[in-house]
Design a binder for these strands. Structure first.
Lengths: 181, 181, 181, 181
DNA sequence: GATGAATGAGTCTTCATTCAT
DNA sequence: AATGAATGAAGACTCATTCAT
């Protein structure tokens, strides 16, 4: 104890705050992907190279940081004007990469997830508007339909290791099971 | 005290084995429904009124007993000759009732789940045959499609507390999103 | 791991239960005396040479084990037919030896302490009866008075390191502050 | 933003020191009363609206600030010329209001408490002188007796939730248990 | 001199798993 | 073959204390 040289993590003061937050989210993203949502919360602090208590200061629990990661994902989608199909593919990619975020969303009881749902809905609404204008979607498809479709694809892909699961599911969503009259 | 008659849970010989097994599965079904797949494994033994070690004798871990519960569910479906729509509704009911079984399936690494998949596939195959004969399904719908549909509905319902989620999802699966030509 | 010789604490089976309980109470008695009621709960298990979880099985928390120690103390007093003065001296001895038990009693919210109070009251009642028969106590002294006196002596002694605190306090209780008419 | 005027808690120079000290003591008083002596030290800073480090500058630890609160209490008693009975009642009131101060006194190892004891002793000495002059106290009652009486009443009241505990204990102290000859 | 975030050691608590009976 | 207590290794969470700004 009372060592001399001291290796790395001396208190860098409040300046580290923003940086720590970023490091924590990044660590969480990696760990959720590698080991699932069940990783010890403390592992995130360790991976981020941040003190246990700082983790708690920034995020009260695993769900909170899961939502933060998801939030970043969503931000990536918000800028772009994707088509429905592309959007579903992106969602599927994200779901495959971090299955556990969906668990975080489902587990959330804080209302933070609700805000994300709203943003997701807004993105989807925009897409629908554009597609409808082109007649690329059945006119009867509502935003609720599309949101449900996104959820179905995401959870299915997250649960199915199979490579082609996404394409398969997306195709199905587009076509439906009933015969064309 | 240490007489012969004995009260209740003293060693009742092999006869108890089958009975214990049933009690354990029932307890697991209840606890998964009530408290999710994260219930302590030991809680299942307690609820079943059975010793810890007996639980381990019958099931090596939580995934194993989860699969056993799912197996029972599947057996309930095998006898009946359901239509696709009814089948999806039944699956949705089961998913809503015990979300955690899906977690068990996803978590399984023992291959036990694979056998269940096969049986599920067989059931679905039978349904498809019957429906196709009547022209009630698009001829291009494969068994893989239908299996994917089942998965999508199940996971979506499990993740969505909303009451109408099942009906919505099933309707969507039937119609698809694309416009009818 | 999977060591050979193995040092000491192999699982000795349920036979160890009673023995463990006794060891835990003894360890608690020592540690409360040495380090106060604030000792880590886990230290008790360590000192007793008992697994963490066994401690929790026997006693849900520190208060519970504190009460168990106090219970033993009380049992020591129940057998004997002491005079009030001797009784107060014994109480003072116990309070000095394990100040923290009083903290446990005060902290208790489980009702277990209430039962101890009742027993304490019974002991005190018996003493009063005997002393009154001899005219050694003011006839107007009620059981409530005597219980309060015991409490006052105990807490005062527990809080006062001074050697003669007990004798002083007991004398005061006997005489009162007011002048004899 | 980083202008001159500044909003509220920016460095206000040494003037703030005294003010901070007062706010800290007040916060400590409240928190000890509300949550006991076990409140996190840092909670005091938070409640006072003061930085952690300022708390440490003023008081090295919880005991120190506890003693400061007690010191204020004592000052309230020093001005007045109370009778013994009134004094005991005031002490009982204070003990009931902030049980934890007694814990602080007991826990003190810094000698600060000793100074308070001295002051307390002086107050009590004054009271005794006045009462003795009137013959209201047994002539044999020493200052030590009275100090012990105060301690007994205070600790008993602090430990006993019961409403009438103080009156009961004070009465007992005045009368004693022994029969009047 | 004040601020408030960072640190990491220390506790509490629970759980999967084993074992004597 | 069943029972239920024992074990100890994790993991969650909090707190006293330090430090850059």
């Amino acid at each position: 104890m009372s060592g001399t040289g001291d290796t790395s993590k001396r208190n860098r003061g409040p300046a580290a705050a923003a940086e720590n937050r970023r490091a924590l989210i990044q660590a969480a993203r990696e760990l959720f992907a590698e080991r699932g949502f069940a990783v010890p919360f403390s592992a995130i602090a360790r991976r981020a190279g941040v003190g246990q208590a700082s983790l708690y200061r920034h995020f009260p629990d695993k769900v909170a940081i899961g939502i933060a990661v998801f939030d970043e994902n969503l931000a990536l989608l918000e800028g772009e004007h994707l088509r429905m199909r592309e959007f579903l593919e992106r969602i599927a990619d994200q779901a495959r990469a971090s299955t556990s975020l969906l668990e975080a969303l489902v587990a959330d009881r804080s209302g933070a997830a609700a805000e994300l749902q709203t943003r997701l809905r807004a993105i989807i609404g925009g897409i629908l508007d554009r597609e409808r204008a082109e007649g690329a979607l059945d006119a009867r498809v509502s935003v609720d339909d599309a949101v449900a479709a996104v959820s179905m694809v995401a959870f299915h892909v997250a649960a199915t290791p199979d490579e082609g699961a996404a394409a398969h599911a997306i195709g199905l969503i587009e076509r439906g099971l009933m015969p064309r009259p």
